[in-house]
Amino acid sequence: MPVAVGPYGQQQPNCFDRVKMGFMMGFAVGMAAGAMFGTFSCLRVGMRGRELMGGVGKTMLQSGGTFGTFMSIGMGIRC
């Protein structure tokens, strides 16, 4: 059985770790959601080719950032 592996102590990861974890998770979810919704909305306004890539990437980063911020706040207020 794993006994106290890794940098996270035994019992509970501390507050900052949890906030970081929340941010990472929110960022991942936001990236995925941004990829989906960004593709739709960029196609709708008529972007194609390279332009589309840029648009989708921007939306992904943006929504990942927003999502991650909110998620880390959500983790932060609970510890």
Partner: peptide, 21 residues
């Protein structure tokens, strides 16, 4: 697989922030 108390706190964030976004 990483640390023993994982599931406990990994479960919670899931439903909460959704409303937010």
């Amino acid at each position: 697989s990483q640390f023993p108390t994982g599931p406990q706190f990994a479960e919670e964030p899931a439903p909460m922030p959704a409303p937010s976004y």
